[in-house]
Design a protein around this nucleic acid. Structure first.
Ligand SMILES: [Mn+2]
Ligand SMILES: [Mn+2]
Ligand SMILES: [Zn+2]
Ligand SMILES: [Zn+2]
Lengths: 141, 141
DNA sequence: ATAGAAATGAGAATCTTGATCATCTGAGCG
DNA sequence: CGCTCAGATGATCAAGATTCTCATTTCTAT
């Protein structure tokens, strides 16, 4: 597995960390709350505390293994850091999350920041709307 | 004053609501936390509870009088809804907030959402960076 | 001025996340 | 393989932000 990433980050390879990585890698939902990960651990029969989940996720974030997003609710969601940066679209009805990357938007952000005398370091962009997924409760029958 | 806005929104014209509107209108800082508004009320000698501040701000938001932003900290900030939509740049060092509007970004957001089968309703965009304001503690002397 | 509906204030409650600290575990070494 | 101890864990407590509860007060309409 990716225990090498843990070692590279200077983190001991422990059972909780491996299990949490596993869930982040294998869950069909790419964006998970700490609580959701905790519940999956319980369902797998692992006796791992919620505090550990939060702690480990924060460490993973600091190590660049995951990124933390605030999509809308009161809970942060975490996703495995694969390859590149992207932003998100969230369905107001069903909560489905789609990812996108738009170079035009990225470039304009840099330009806007420069015009205002800012050295841009980061940004957060989330679009909210109604999706047309057949499972979305909002979609007309 | 703008008590007419309150009536239009179906809200009774009460002292707490008027005072809170007043602060939102007159504060030199356009983006205020509920706590900041609460403190200004106390400083003005008004005996208004923090719960009322939160309650009223939520009602103002529902009425379209203010909008609520999550800029970075754990506290939401509120700003009076004047004229048009805009997005924000926040300085990582001094917390200064600048506003901007970029039609190119707005258009690309609509296009991206459409490509993904979303009817876009809203969006949140915040840029983070280091500002060059002379008062910013980060700026080299 | 009066009455009733709506709003307020004090404090409790909730929710999410981080801190404490005694106990446990994994990586390195003999 | 078994020992040692820095580092990690888990149970619990704590903190911060926001909402809820409910008795009391204040608007608005008569
Ligand atoms: Mn993502
Ligand atoms: Mn603004
Ligand atoms: Zn949907
Ligand atoms: Zn600054």
């Amino acid at each position: 597995m990716e225990t090498s990433n843990l070692k590279k980050a200077g983190l001991k390879v422990t059972l909780p960390r491996m299990k949490i990585l596993e869930i982040l890698e294998n869950s069909e939902t790419r964006h998970l709350t700490a609580e959701a990960i905790y519940r999956e651990l319980l369902d797998s029969g692992e006796e791992i505390g919620l505090a550990t989940v939060y702690r480990v996720l924060t460490q993973f974030e600091a190590a660049g293994l995951v990124c933390r997003l605030h999509l809308e609710g009161n809970q942060a969601v975490f996703e495995l850091e694969r390859g590149g940066h992207h932003d998100h679209i969230v369905c107001n009805q069903c909560g489905r999350v789609e990812e996108f990357f738009d170079e035009t938007i990225e470039r304009r952000q840099r330009e806007v920041a420069q015009h205002h005398g800012f050295a841009i370091k980061d940004h957060a962009l989330v679009l909210y709307g109604d999706c047309t997924d057949s499972a979305c409760p909002h979609r007309p029958a």
